[in-house]
Amino acid sequence: MTNIRITEVFTQAMPVLEKLEEAGFEAYFVGGCVRDLLLERPIHDVDIATSAYPEEVKETFAKSIDTGIQHGTVTVLYGGSSYEITTFRTESGYQDFRRPDKVTFVQNLDEDLKRRDFTINALAMNRQGEIIDLFDGLGDLKRRVIKAVGVAEDRFHEDALRMMRAVRFMSQLSFSLEEKTRQFSIS
């Protein structure tokens, strides 16, 4: 784990994590917002992953919207901002190569991070600014490389749009595509 300096956008979102933790749940900042913080890029939205089930998230906050409730996502309106809060989950069965046939809520951040597309997006950060990095996303940020989490072929078969996301990240970040990830993104 690595500690970093938390910026204002995270400071504003901190009460959301605190409320979830006070209610007895785990909660982390996840994904692109953590990546962009580490790259010192503008952050457009802050995503939160939690051990709380959607109904528990809704009970914890006064104002919420069922954004993607079937996939565990609730948008919470708090302090004049909105935050997507998603229950830790695993996914399986991607018959349309885009959306999972089955979503299973889990109580483990590690399982949630395993389902993500690229190592640089499979990063989480707690309230203390500690980075949770199970797949060497920090190393890939330093190497400026886009690499699939786990087996690249599996990630692209789950969601074919991940190939386009890889190209977009390469363009936006001036990163290269890791060799095994490249082999399956163009096959």
Rank of each mutant, 00 (worst) to 15 (best):
G31F: 09
L141C: 04
D133Q: 04
R116Q: 12
G150T: 12
Y83R: 08
V57D: 00
T67L: 14
K114E: 15
S92Y: 08
A27K: 08
V106R: 02
I146H: 02
L138V: 12
S92Q: 11
E55G: 04
T73S: 09
T104L: 09
I120H: 00
M125E: 06
G32H: 10
R35S: 03
V106A: 06
K102N: 14
A166M: 14
K58F: 07
V34W: 09
M163N: 12
G129F: 14
F29T: 02
A124H: 10
R127G: 05
V149P: 03
F135C: 07
R143E: 15
R41W: 06
D110F: 14
G31I: 04
I146Q: 02
D154H: 08
T86N: 06
D96G: 02
M170T: 06
F135H: 09
G80H: 06
I69F: 11
A52W: 04
H157T: 13
R41E: 08
Y53T: 13
D136H: 10
V106W: 10
L77C: 09
R143K: 15
D101M: 11
G139C: 05
L134Y: 14
F88P: 00
I131K: 04
H44A: 01
I85K: 02
M164A: 15
V76T: 03
G80L: 05
R144M: 11
Y78P: 05
R155A: 13
P100W: 03
I48D: 01
R155W: 00
G68M: 10
G32V: 08
T90P: 06
F118R: 05
T50W: 00
G129K: 08
T50N: 03
D110Q: 15
F97N: 15
S92N: 06
M125G: 03
V76P: 00
A62K: 13
E91T: 15
F118Y: 13
L77E: 15
E158I: 09
F29R: 06
F29A: 04
K58N: 00
F97I: 01
V149Q: 03
M125V: 08
K63S: 11
I48L: 11
D45A: 07
A62S: 11
E158F: 01
E59T: 12
V57Y: 07
G139V: 14
G79R: 00
V74T: 09
L138G: 02
V46D: 02
F135R: 03
V149M: 08
G93Q: 13
R89D: 05
K58Y: 06
K147E: 11
E153W: 07
G68V: 01
E111G: 04
I48H: 06
R165L: 15
K63Y: 06
L39M: 14
R35H: 03
S82P: 01
D47R: 06
E55R: 13
H71K: 12
E55F: 09
L141Y: 01
R98A: 12
L38G: 00
Q107S: 12
G137Q: 03
A49Q: 08
Y78K: 05
R155Q: 14
M164W: 11
T67N: 08
